[in-house]
Design a binder for these strands. Structure first.
Ligand SMILES: [Mn+2]
Ligand SMILES: [Mn+2]
Ligand SMILES: [Zn+2]
Ligand SMILES: [Zn+2]
Lengths: 143, 143
DNA sequence: TTAATAATTGCAATTACGTCGCATTTATCT
DNA sequence: AGATAAATGCGACGTAATTGCAATTATTAA
């Protein structure tokens, strides 16, 4: 059984990258949370990691497949990649920013079917649904 | 039968907006082309429209429903709205940037089904597939 | 355990993107 | 054509992201 942490270390070593305090901290932040924007990441690390380093580390995380970017409301956020968490998409609430993961095999196969029909070799795809969650719908009716 | 141009004029008039050289030019650019980024738009208009005006005009185009934003490769692009062209999504080639529209009712109903399942009131959604088009796949095999 | 070396980071400067206030120009209405 | 309100251009500004380089830190091998 390989924990997230072991997996993380392995990917770094495989790619000849050092395990630094900065990389470890950013990885830790991404482990338990919802997807985070670059702004949220830089704010969470405060002065303990320079802004430029945050950008550089996330870039190498992307290149080595530790994280992936997902599209949320015209900007991207970062979350752990398929090496850690099963592939999925997101439903987001326009009012309270709640993020709900979507895990639907039927959606995935439909997407690759669409690529096939158009003679495309599919590499990646993004599906994003925005709306109002149950709670926010209820609050709207009251107000 | 109402042409794109008539429709455009009507929307402006309905909203009490003037028909200016700048608005007309931006609309013309969006008529024949694929979706365009803000950068592509400002470059296309060159010095004939100030950058600030391009942003302001596109903002009013969005507010009045003349254009909509779509997500392509982690940034948004602008294209004519459903008032001109039927709702659709896009398949884009990572190599030659070819953009192919996707028009699939089955996809649309599947999306709203997903919102339902999670008790979300759906407002908007983005679906985006990236890969290699037929031509670029062929070129890769040769090289 | 320490020294060498190569990678990584912090810092400061720079670029890119988008916004804003205000004076000038332009479209619209009479 | 002239009056009026709207829209644009210009310059300044704010924030996000990138870069070069010197200082620091992790890794490897003695
Ligand atoms: Mn997720
Ligand atoms: Mn389109
Ligand atoms: Zn909500
Ligand atoms: Zn192609």
């Amino acid at each position: 059984m390989s924990t997230f942490q072991d997996n993380f270390i392995n990917i770094l070593k495989t790619n000849g990258l050092s395990i630094t305090r900065q990389r470890q901290l950013l990885f830790d932040l991404l482990q338990d949370q919802d997807p985070l924007s670059m702004n949220e990441l830089t704010e969470l690390v405060g002065t303990t990691i320079d802004r430029a380093s945050v950008y550089r580390i996330i870039a190498t995380f992307e290149e080595t497949g530790i994280v992936r970017r997902i599209s949320i409301g015209w900007k991207f956020k970062i979350e752990l990649s398929e090496a850690f968490v099963a592939h999925h998409h997101h439903l987001t609430c326009l009012s309270c920013q709640l993020v709900v993961p979507i895990n639907q095999e039927k959606l995935e196969s439909f997407i690759s079917e669409l690529a096939d029909i158009n003679n495309f070799q599919p590499i990646q795809h993004q599906v994003e649904i925005q709306g109002y969650c149950q709670r926010c719908q209820a609050n709207r009716n009251i107000a």
